[in-house]
Measured scan of single mutants.
Amino acid sequence: CHSECLGNCSQPDDPTKCVACRNFYLDGRCVETCPPPYYHFQDWRCVNFSFCQDLHHKCKNSRRQGCHQYVIHNNKCIPECPSGYTMNSSNLLCTPCLGPCPKVCHLLEGEKTIDSVTSAQELRGCTVINGSLIINIRGGNNLAAELEANLGLIEEISGYLKIRRSYALVSLSFFRKLRLIRGETLEIGNYSFYALDNQNLRQLWDWSKHNLTITQGKLFFHYNPKLCLSEIHKMEEVSGTKGRQERNDIALKTNGDQASCENELLKFSYIRTSFDKILLRWEPYWPPDFRDLLGFMLFYKEAPYQNVTEFDGQDACGSNSWTVVDIDPPLRSNDPKSQNHPGWLMRGLKPWTQYAIFVKTLVTFSDERRTYGAKSDIIYVQTDATNPSVPLDPISVSNSSSQIILKWKPPSDPNGNITHYLVFWERQAEDSELFELDYCLKGLKLPSRTWSPPFESEDSQKHNQSEYEDSAGECCSCPKTDSQILKELEESSFRKTFEDYLHNVVFVPRKT
Rank of each mutant, 00 (worst) to 15 (best):
Y167Q: 04
R291L: 02
L172T: 14
C126E: 00
S132Q: 07
F299M: 07
D328P: 12
Q245N: 09
A303Q: 13
T118D: 07
D328F: 08
Q199I: 07
Q306I: 03
D257I: 03
R369S: 12
Q199C: 00
K267M: 12
E156P: 01
K234A: 13
D315T: 13
H210I: 09
N224T: 06
S208H: 02
L143W: 14
E246V: 12
Y380A: 01
F221K: 00
L169R: 01
L349Y: 01
D289S: 02
L294F: 04
E237L: 06
L298N: 04
N255E: 04
D115T: 10
D335G: 09
W344F: 11
F311S: 10
N130G: 02
I114Q: 01
A356R: 12
I163T: 04
W286E: 03
N200R: 11
L107Q: 10
D328A: 14
T309P: 13
R164M: 12
D312Y: 07
C126M: 02
K242G: 08
L212H: 01
T127Y: 08
N211T: 11
T383W: 01
G183T: 02
N255P: 06
L392Y: 10
V324Q: 06
G139R: 05
I157S: 02
F175R: 05
Y160V: 08
L266C: 03
V390D: 02
A303M: 07
V325W: 15
M297S: 09
S158C: 13
K177L: 12
L204T: 10
H341T: 14
V397K: 15
S132K: 02
F358G: 13
G295N: 05
L406G: 00
L204D: 03
L151R: 02
H341P: 11
I357E: 00
H341I: 12
K253M: 15
D289H: 02
F174G: 03
E109K: 14
F221V: 10
G131D: 00
K162S: 10
S321G: 10
E146R: 15
R202Q: 00
G343L: 08
I134E: 01
G343D: 13
H233T: 10
F358P: 00
S260K: 03
R369E: 05
S119G: 05
L153I: 10
F220W: 05
Y167K: 03
W352F: 08
D326V: 06
V390P: 15
L212W: 15
P388N: 02
V117C: 04
L362C: 04
N136L: 05
C261E: 04
D206L: 07
G159R: 09
R291V: 03
S274R: 13
Q382A: 09
V381M: 09
S171T: 11
A259M: 05
K242R: 15
L180M: 10
Q314P: 02
I395G: 11
S269M: 10
A145M: 09
G140I: 14
W286C: 07
K277R: 11
N150Y: 06
E262N: 00
I379P: 02
R272V: 12
T361M: 05
T383C: 06
L279D: 07
T371W: 11
W322T: 03
I250P: 12
I135T: 00
G295T: 02
T185N: 10
E109G: 14
G152W: 14
A385P: 09
L186G: 12
L143I: 12
A144H: 15
L392W: 15
W408H: 00
S173M: 11
T127I: 09
I327F: 03
S132L: 01
A144G: 12
Q199D: 10
Q216H: 09
T364Q: 01
Y380P: 01
T386W: 09
A374P: 11
D335L: 08
K360T: 02
S166M: 15
A120W: 04
E122R: 15
G189L: 15
A303E: 06
K360C: 04
A316P: 08
K409H: 09
P391T: 02
D367Q: 15
L107K: 03
D249I: 15
V397M: 12
G373V: 02
L186S: 13
N255F: 11
L227R: 00
R369H: 05
F174P: 07
E187G: 13
N190T: 14
G313F: 07
Q199H: 04
W352A: 08
M297R: 00
I232V: 04
A259E: 02
I271Y: 02
D367H: 06
R370M: 01
W205S: 03
D257L: 09
L186T: 09
R347E: 04
K350Q: 11
K253F: 14
P342R: 04
V359H: 00
S274Q: 14
R179S: 10
S333V: 08
K360S: 01
G139Y: 01
T309A: 09
E109F: 13
Y191P: 15
I154M: 14
G131F: 00
M235I: 14
G189E: 15
S321Q: 14
F296D: 04
L229D: 11
E231H: 12
I404N: 01
G295M: 13
A385K: 06
Q382T: 14
L180K: 10
F221W: 03
I379F: 05
E264F: 04
T383A: 06
L280R: 00
D289Y: 03
I357G: 11
K162T: 04
T371K: 02
E246T: 08
S208V: 11
P342I: 13
N334W: 12
